Simulated scan of single mutants.
Amino acid sequence: MAPVDDASPGAPLTKREFEALARFRFGIRRYLRFSEETVRRHGLTPQQYQLLLALKGFPDREWATVRELAERLQLRHHSVVELVDRAQGQDLVTRAANPDDARSVRILLTAAGEEVLGRLSALHRDELRRLDATLTPPTWGDSAFPAGGEPV
């Protein structure tokens, strides 16, 4: 993803665009609050839920390295190591040797991690369905009319 150029913001936003942006931001915050409260009620921290989700949702395989998880979670390597240590202590994840690279280990979900992740993710899916309209990204002046010429 290209970095955002804060020096040249472009055309000013219209009132409608401000409203759409505010509605979207409200939806994001509402979803995050729901997520944080829900995972805590189930005995996890939000970071642990994100770790489990990153593992289960990792493309094309059922494991990831700490380095890959750090990238996915946007955390520092040592923070992910601590997060994995705590999750392993709760029997949510396990470490396994990486036969392709002896310098790294594979992090995998345990059966208990799979079970709690499945339960929590179903609740998150249902909440996203409820917030559908609120979480629709805003359309901007020039993107309100796609190639076909009809408004979005």
Rank of each mutant, 00 (worst) to 15 (best):
Thr139His: 12
Gln90Ile: 03
Gly89Thr: 00
Glu115Asn: 08
Thr110Glu: 12
Val66Ile: 15
Gly141Lys: 02
Ala133Phe: 12
Arg106Ala: 05
Thr45Asn: 11
Asp126Ala: 15
Asp142Pro: 01
His124Leu: 15
Ala20Thr: 02
Trp63Glu: 02
Asp85Trp: 10
Val80Arg: 03
Val39Lys: 02
Val66Asp: 06
Arg67Ser: 11
His78Asp: 15
Arg129Phe: 04
Glu68Val: 00
Gln47Ser: 13
Arg40Gly: 09
Arg67Lys: 09
Gly141Thr: 09
Ala97Glu: 10
Ala147Tyr: 09
Leu131Arg: 06
Val80Cys: 04
Leu55Val: 08
Asp85Gln: 14
Arg130Cys: 02
Leu135Gly: 08
Glu82Gln: 08
Val105Pro: 00
Glu114Leu: 13
Phe58Val: 03
Leu108Cys: 06
Gly149Phe: 10
Gly118Arg: 06
Ala22Met: 05
Thr45Val: 13
Gln74Trp: 06
Glu114Tyr: 07
Thr65Tyr: 00
Glu115Lys: 03
Ala147Arg: 14
Ala54Trp: 03
Ser104Tyr: 08
Thr139Ile: 01
Asp100Leu: 14
His42Ile: 02
Ala87Ile: 02
Gly57Pro: 00
Arg95Gln: 13
Leu92Cys: 07
Ala20Asn: 03
Ala87Glu: 05
Gln90Thr: 06
Phe145His: 13
Lys56Pro: 01
Arg23Trp: 04
Leu32Pro: 00
Leu108Trp: 04
Glu71Ala: 10
Gly149Asp: 08
Thr45His: 12
Leu73Pro: 01
Gly57Val: 00
Ala112Gln: 15
Ala111Tyr: 01
Arg129Val: 12
Ala87Thr: 07
Gly113Leu: 09
Leu109Thr: 07
Ala122His: 09
Arg61Lys: 10
Ala70Thr: 13
Ala22Tyr: 11
Ser79Asn: 15
Arg33Gly: 05
Arg23Pro: 01
Leu55Lys: 06
Gly43Phe: 06
Ala147Gly: 03
Leu128Gly: 14
Ala96Leu: 13
Leu108His: 07
Arg23Phe: 07
His42Tyr: 15
Leu75Ile: 00
Ala144Gly: 07
Val66Gln: 10
Thr110Gln: 10
Glu114Trp: 09
Thr136Asn: 09
Ala22Arg: 11
Glu71Met: 07
Leu52Gln: 01
Phe26Tyr: 05
Leu135Ser: 04
Ala96Pro: 00
Arg61Asp: 04
Ser121Asp: 15
Leu51Glu: 08
Gly149Cys: 03
Ser143Phe: 10
His124Gln: 15
Val93Ala: 08
Gln50Phe: 05
Ala97Thr: 01
Arg95Glu: 12
Thr45Lys: 05
Leu109Phe: 11
Leu83Ser: 03
Ala54Pro: 05
Ala70Trp: 06
Ser143Ile: 10
Ala87Cys: 09
Pro138Gln: 00
Ala70Met: 12
His78Lys: 13
Asn98Asp: 15
Pro138Ser: 01
Ser35Gly: 05
Arg67Gln: 04
Arg40Ala: 14
Arg72Ala: 14
Phe58Ser: 12
Gly27Asn: 05
Ala22Cys: 03
Arg129Cys: 01
Arg72Lys: 11
Phe24Thr: 02
Ala102Thr: 01
Ser104Arg: 12
Ser121Arg: 14
Thr136Phe: 02
Asp101Met: 09
Ala147Ser: 06
Glu82Ala: 13
Ala97Tyr: 02
Glu37Val: 04
Ala20Phe: 00
Ala144Met: 13
Leu75Val: 02
Phe145Asn: 05
